[in-house]
Structures are given as structure tokens and as C-alpha cells.
Nucleic acid binder design. Structure first.
Length: 438
RNA sequence: ACUCCCAUCGUCUAUCGGCUAGGACACCAGGUUUUCAUCCUGGUAAGCGGGGUUCGAUUCCCCGUGGGAGUGCCA
């Protein structure tokens, strides 16, 4: 029997990462087994379902590289089918009509007697006594089908073989299994994924930081988020962590998914994102680099392509989040930049530092050729003259020409800026902080 | 209150009865001709508690404890 799985989000608001992870496991499972990955939009809550939300679900799937095998299904189109199923249950005595609290008549599913059991791919056989569950409303008094009914009926008609969803559905699943049986349908396999929780062990929400897929699109690669989320609960069993999609598809195994909740570690995510950025071909990285700077208001249209190439190349190996790019590189493209005052205080305002910097400026301005060797020669002679270590001059110069304390390799930095810029920036810095020292 | 699920370093995890408990992120130290980052090497750091089964339990069972979920017209 060929595998058929589905991702069934309810389109209310933005797509939560917990949901997205369910999509990932479904997709991975389908691809690993050469099966079908389907999407069903559960938009029966018409008050809260919006076209925007539907679009954001589909966008998120696309961004994360999850292709859908058949046409997207909308649950709201299928109410008649759900109601027909309710009629069948009524006819056969599995359900009854009731009027509670004067709201009108609703249809209630009668829980069976005895144990309800099903096989969970992660947790093994799960059992619950039907007597511990109350009867279930399956059609509201306004005539609309309830989630439980719609979900089960649709899964039956879509031929779903494996229901892979969040841990929080386990209680529902016991009820759903009873429904499958009453509807005389074969019960699919189930897999209940552990939840993503915050540091307090509560379900991860937007209060805990970025919780929606959209929150990550600026800073992270879709591949990195996919990899990161897949690793939250699953591991291939060996020590590999940075994986391409193909590797994950090849090694994915539901039986190796953990059944306990996991917390997001954003530092690890940053690291993983950096790893995936390095796997990116340069021209793709460059595109992203340019758009990131331009959306931060830095105009690159007048800038020489080679200069952009140069800076992008330097940054390719050292980017962890795309959002930090403007702050880290804007000084390459504009000569108005601001100083990180904390670092100024720490380095530039120390006794003698400005004088050393001024000497470096003079030395560099006198160079006939501006390359790594001549720069080093210049720094060394200043170091001797000022009786400091050469290494102490590097951060001073870096700060003077960029305003910040971190960035590309020192020599690449100066060469990319060029002698003229370097000298004038050093001069400007000295003038700015003259007399401000200790 | 009841029912169900879960429990290894700070975090993500490996282990499917033999463990000197492995890896990754983070952290600390050192190295990569002195800056930043990357990278490399090393280090600190874990089996919730109590019983039981067993020659042997992190691994199996039970009881606690802690966390999560559910308990009729949200999904």
C-alpha cells in the first residue's frame, strides 16, 4: 500500500513553527517512502479562517521547499460529505440527537464500550478505556460539522494511510479511532509528534520569541529552518546534523523520532543557518546579500560590481543571520558610518591610542603601493616607534575605518576600502576624538 | 479530581541490558605568524527519586515526583 499523508492546518493567523514541523515530518515520511504528501486546509471555523492565513500557509510550505502532490483540499467544500457521515452514524445507532441548554438539536457520537486502542509509530500501542471519555458532539446545533467528524471523514476519503500530527492530539485520536470504527473504515497508522516548548516547558508561543514561520524569513534560510526543525525530535542515529534535504529524505525514519518535548535553541539555529549559508552557491548568496542591504536602504546601484563581489565574498563565510549584514557591511558602501561608542571607549580613548592611530594614518598615506606586505611593514614600524605590539594596532585601525569591532580579515578589509578611504577615515577619526581621551 | 502522554549534560540528541554514557550548540582554555570571524585541538557538564526483574540496568516493570495534554457543541 502506498503511503499517503496530509498536512491539515487550520488557517487562523500565521503559521506556527510547531505546525510547520508537523508538515516537515509528513513531507519527509512521504518522500522517504515514495508516497504522496497532501494538504488539506481545515477552514471550517469560518469566523477565524482568512484568505491571508491560507496564503501564508501555502507560502510557508513553498519557502521551506515542501512540494504538494495533489490539489489542495478545502474542508469547507466538504460539509455535505461530513453531514452524510453523521446521518449514517445516526441510522446505525452510533449517534443520537440531543438538545442541551436550549441551543437546538446537535448530533452526538456515542462512545463505544471497552478499550479503544491504536498503534502509534512512536509510542507503541496506546489504550484508553472508552468509559473515560464522554460522548462527542459531531454536528453543532447550527448544522455545521465539528472538527472531529470532518477530520476523520476527510482522512477516510483522501485515503490517508498515516496520520502524523502533534502530541496534543492523542486524546482526540482515541475518539477518532472510535469514529473510524463506527464508520466501518480502516484505521490509519498514527504518529504523535512531541511538542515544541519554551524554557518553562509550556507550549512554545509568540511570547517566547519568534513563533511563526514568517518571523524567520528575513534572517534564515528555508533549508536551515527545515533542517533545524527536523532535528527537533528526530535524529538519523549517527552524528550527522547539517544535512541536505536529500540526506534527510534518505535517512528519515518515524521510528527514530523521540516522544518527548523539545526546546528551541536559537544559538544552535544561528550556527546551523551559518552552515547552510556556506553551502549556498556564491551567486545565490550574493543575490541575498544585495537584497538584504537594499532593503536596509543602502543603494548599491551606483557601486562597482567588483566591489560588491569582494565584500560579499568576505561575508559569505561569516554570516550567521542575514539581518546582521547591513550593520556589518554598510561602511563598505558609504563613507558615513557611526562609531560603536563602547569599543571606542575601550580602545581608542586609551592613553596613546589616538597618537598611534595618527602615526598609522601618516604611514599608510606615504605608501607607494598599498598591499598586505606594505601595510604590515607600515604597522610594524609604527609599532616599534610607539613601543606597542603590532597586534594592538589592528583593532584601532579597524575601528577607525569601520566604526565597529568585528568584520572581515584585516588585510582584506583595508584593501577593499582602498588607500585613499583608509587614510581619510583614519584622519577623520583622529580629528573626531582628539581631546576626548583620558 | 479523573484519564492519557512524557522524563540522558544548560539546550538538541545517541544508546534499543554490558557505559570508562558518545556527538552537536553554548561556555572555558589553547592553536591557526599578532585584529575580527571561520576553522582546529582540548576541557567543564547528564541518566528525577524509590523499589523490583537480572550475573548486570540509563535501557525492562511498578510506585512516586515533575512537566504536558484532554475531560460533549475550538481546531
Amino acid at each position: 500500500m502506498s503511503v499517503r499523508v496530509r498536512f491539515a492546518p487550520s488557517p487562523t493567523g500565521q503559521v506556527h513553527i510547531g505546525n510547520m514541523r508537523a508538515a516537515i515530518f509528513n513531507w519527509l515520511f512521504a518522500r522517504h517512502h515514495g508516497g504522496h504528501f497532501l494538504v488539506r486546509i481545515e477552514d471550517t471555523d469560518r469566523e477565524r479562517s482568512t484568505p491571508d492565513a491560507i496564503r501564508s500557509v501555502l507560502d510557508a510550505l513553498d519557502w521551506m521547499g515542501m512540494d504538494i502532490d495533489e490539489e489542495v483540499m478545502y474542508q469547507s467544500d466538504r460539509a455535505q460529505s461530513h453531514l452524510d457521515a453523521a446521518e449514517r452514524l445516526l441510522d446505525r445507532g452510533y449517534a443520537y440527537r440531543e438538545n442541551v441548554g436550549g441551543k437546538g438539536e446537535c448530533v452526538v457520537f456515542r462512545m463505544p464500550t471497552g478499550p479503544v486502542r491504536f498503534q502509534d509509530e512512536l509510542k507503541g500501542e496506546l489504550t484508553k478505556n472508552a468509559a473515560d471519555m464522554k460522548d462527542l458532539v459531531i454536528v453543532r446545533s447550527d448544522g455545521s460539522p465539528v472538527f472531529h467528524l470532518a477530520n476523520v471523514v476527510d482522512d477516510i476519503e483522501m485515503g490517508i494511510t498515516h496520520v502524523i500530527r502533534g502530541d496534543d492530539h492523542i486524546e482526540n485520536t482515541y475518539r477518532h479511532v472510535a469514529l473510524y470504527e463506527a464508520l466501518e473504515a480502516s484505521v490509519p497508522r498514527f504518529a504523535h509528534l512531541p511538542m515544541i516548548v519554551n524554557a518553562q516547558g509550556k507550549p512554545y508561543s509568540k511570547r517566547d520569541g519568534s513563533a511563526f514561520v514568517g518571523d524567520f524569513r528575513e534572517d534564515y534560510l528555508g533549508d536551515a529552518l527545515f533542517n533545524f526543525l527536523a532535528l527537533l525530535g528526530w535524529s538519523p542515529g549517527d552524528d550527522r546534523e547539517v544535512m541536505t534535504r536529500a540526506e534527510m529524505v534518505e535517512h528519515f525514519d518515524l521510528a527514530k523520532v523521540k516522544s518527548s518535548a523539545a526546546q528551541m535553541d536559537m544559538k544552535k539555529f544561528d550556527w546551523l543557518n551559518g552552515q547552510h549559508i556556506r553551502l549556498l552557491p556564491f551567486d545565490e548568496y550574493r543575490k541575498r546579500f544585495v537584497s538584504q542591504l537594499e532593503s536596509a536602504g543602502i543603494d548599491l546601484s551606483q557601486v562597482d560590481d567588483e566591489h560588491v563581489d569582494r565584500v560579499a565574498t568576505m561575508m559569505h563565510e561569516r554570516t550567521t543571520r542575514f539581518n546582521e549584514l547591513p550593520e556589518l557591511t554598510s561602511y563598505f558602501f558609504t563613507d558615513t558610518y557611526s562609531y560603536d561608542e563602547k569599543i571606542v571607549k575601550k580602545r581608542l580613548l586609551k592613553t596613546g591610542a589616538l597618537d598611534s592611530l595618527a602615526s598609522v594614518g601618516h604611514g599608510l598615506s606615504a605608501l607607494n603601493t598599498f598591499d598586505s606586505e606594505s601595510i604590515d611593514g607600515c604597522l610594524e614600524s609604527v609599532a616599534v616607534e610607539r613601543e606597542v605590539k603590532t597586534g594592538q594596532l589592528f583593532p584601532l585601525v579597524r575601528l577607525a575605518v569601520s566604526g565597529i569591532g568585528r568584520g572581515p580579515d584585516f588585510h582584506s578589509l583595508l584593501l577593499a576600502l582602498g588607500q585613499e578611504q583608509v587614510v581619510s577615515r583614519i584622519g577623520k577619526t583622529v580629528a573626531t576624538y582628539q581631546g576626548a581621551g583620558e
